Amino acid sequence: MCRHILNAQVSIRSPCCRQWFDCAQCHADTQDHQLKQTMEMAFACKKCKKCFRKDMNEFEDSDEFCPHCDNHFVIEAKEPQARLEVEGDDVRKDARMIKDERVKEKEQLTIWDDEGDASRLG
């Protein structure tokens, strides 16, 4: 699983060490050599788990899809973004954080409460 590109659709086999990586940064993080560039690339689709080759000299719009399952693997990369969130207690235990204070609850009466109307007892 690539931690640099969240929506990687294929793995790419590096021509230098013959190992599979999701992106060039994953190769740089784990290997001590530079990635060898080539125009003949081998891909492994993450949807159908089948491998295929593409010649990048003759790459066209129709080559953006896996030849086995038509998975569109050339898409805009989603990279992890830092975000700030509010930490709180588990809402299943304490729902005060999500309770709408604008809505007034009706007062719960018991049989021992006097509503002011004694004729209703009985």
Rank of each mutant, 00 (worst) to 15 (best):
residue 91 V to M: 13
residue 46 K to G: 08
residue 30 T to D: 03
residue 62 S to Q: 01
residue 91 V to C: 10
residue 54 K to M: 10
residue 86 V to M: 14
residue 93 K to D: 13
residue 33 H to S: 09
residue 70 D to I: 03
residue 22 D to L: 01
residue 64 E to C: 15
residue 52 F to K: 03
residue 84 L to T: 14
residue 68 H to Y: 11
residue 27 H to V: 00
residue 85 E to C: 04
residue 90 D to P: 00
residue 77 A to R: 14
residue 5 I to H: 03
residue 37 Q to E: 00
residue 39 M to L: 07
residue 45 C to P: 00
residue 9 Q to T: 03
residue 4 H to E: 04
residue 46 K to N: 03
residue 21 F to K: 02
residue 40 E to R: 01
residue 10 V to K: 00
residue 19 Q to L: 15
residue 69 C to R: 07
residue 44 A to Y: 07
residue 5 I to L: 06
residue 71 N to G: 02
residue 3 R to P: 00
residue 14 S to M: 14
residue 85 E to A: 12
residue 28 A to H: 13
residue 15 P to L: 06
residue 8 A to W: 14
residue 55 D to W: 05
residue 89 D to H: 13
residue 22 D to G: 05
residue 50 K to W: 06
residue 45 C to E: 00
residue 90 D to N: 06
residue 31 Q to P: 02
residue 31 Q to D: 14
residue 77 A to F: 10
residue 14 S to I: 09
residue 43 F to D: 06
residue 38 T to I: 11
residue 88 G to N: 04
residue 50 K to R: 11
residue 38 T to G: 14
residue 13 R to C: 10
residue 39 M to W: 03
residue 70 D to S: 09
residue 17 C to K: 02
residue 63 D to N: 04
residue 28 A to E: 15
residue 53 R to E: 05
residue 17 C to W: 07
residue 41 M to G: 02
residue 94 D to Q: 05
residue 43 F to A: 05
residue 35 L to Y: 09
residue 11 S to D: 04
residue 81 Q to R: 14
residue 20 W to Q: 06
residue 71 N to H: 15
residue 21 F to P: 00
residue 72 H to W: 10
residue 30 T to S: 11
residue 93 K to Y: 12
residue 10 V to Q: 02
residue 23 C to K: 02
residue 78 K to T: 14
residue 86 V to H: 14
residue 8 A to P: 04
residue 13 R to V: 09
residue 3 R to D: 06
residue 93 K to N: 13
residue 45 C to A: 01
residue 19 Q to W: 02
residue 35 L to K: 04
residue 80 P to V: 12
residue 74 V to M: 05
residue 25 Q to M: 14
residue 28 A to R: 08
residue 19 Q to D: 14
residue 34 Q to L: 09
residue 11 S to I: 08
residue 25 Q to S: 11
residue 18 R to N: 12
residue 11 S to C: 09
residue 74 V to H: 08
residue 46 K to R: 10
residue 79 E to A: 06
residue 61 D to I: 14
residue 5 I to Y: 12
residue 92 R to M: 12
residue 16 C to N: 15
residue 82 A to T: 10
residue 45 C to Q: 01
residue 91 V to Y: 00
residue 55 D to V: 12
residue 42 A to F: 10
residue 88 G to V: 08
residue 70 D to W: 04
residue 49 K to H: 09
residue 55 D to P: 05
residue 95 A to K: 12
residue 36 K to L: 15
residue 15 P to R: 04
residue 16 C to S: 13
residue 75 I to T: 07
residue 15 P to A: 12
residue 74 V to P: 01
residue 55 D to A: 15
residue 25 Q to E: 10
residue 91 V to A: 07
residue 27 H to Y: 07
residue 30 T to R: 02
residue 39 M to Q: 08
residue 19 Q to Y: 08
residue 52 F to C: 01
